[in-house]
Amino acid sequence: MKQELDNLNITNQTLEKLTGFEINNIFVGGVIGGGYRPSIFQKPKRLLSFWITEILVLVLIFVFTLPIGLLFNRHPTNGINEPSEAWQFLLVTLGITLIAIVSWNLYMWFRVKQLRILMHLLDEVDKYNEVVQAVDILDRLEAVGNSQVNLINRDEVLEALRVTKNTLIAGLMTEKILRESRISLTRRHELFANIENNLATLRTLEVKERASEYGQLLNEALQIGLSVHREVQNFSRFPPRS
């Protein structure tokens, strides 16, 4: 990837700095104490990773419940070998494991509800990074002499991506500030105005480039910008916490 496109990419490290959470493809805020990203249900690979994590956590919890199971069978005469004793042991350990895994999933679901806007913004960041990758692929096709790829308006596409990146970053910052919260109304309007300016720029670029091969990418960038705008508007309905 060229340096300019590399700079446009929004990395997980940047996201972590902006949001204050550990972020990966499946979880926001880590496995312990965080929530799963709703987008995992739209991407089979991520969903598979999520289910594997669920199974691994289940095994891990079961491992840690062994002493509790032993506690309930404290005085077996010949260890735990008889079917009734083994059954009691398994009932305790598996029961606790099940309760723990259900509680963990409920907690994660609760966190997803709490961080709904952040989750949506992160999905938009994913879409944005995909657009950056698409531009990179077009660049590489052009580099190997594919004449069907037109790079006439590349600079304007990069400009649109820069604006989109700024919009996303402003959106994420707004979300974090409002989440953590004691933001003044002036500061809130300042951030909101910044996002609206970016959106206006994106709209202008999109109208100019509608006819070119890059029109679709620009449209994608505009959609991302609009989505961020919508989410921040949602935020502005809630009064700042005192």
Partner: peptide, 19 residues
Amino acid sequence: WTLRPFFGSPGKFELFRHR
């Protein structure tokens, strides 16, 4: 020692031995 057997001595399977 409490969680043994890990290897399982020849004979019947044991979940946990007598302490």
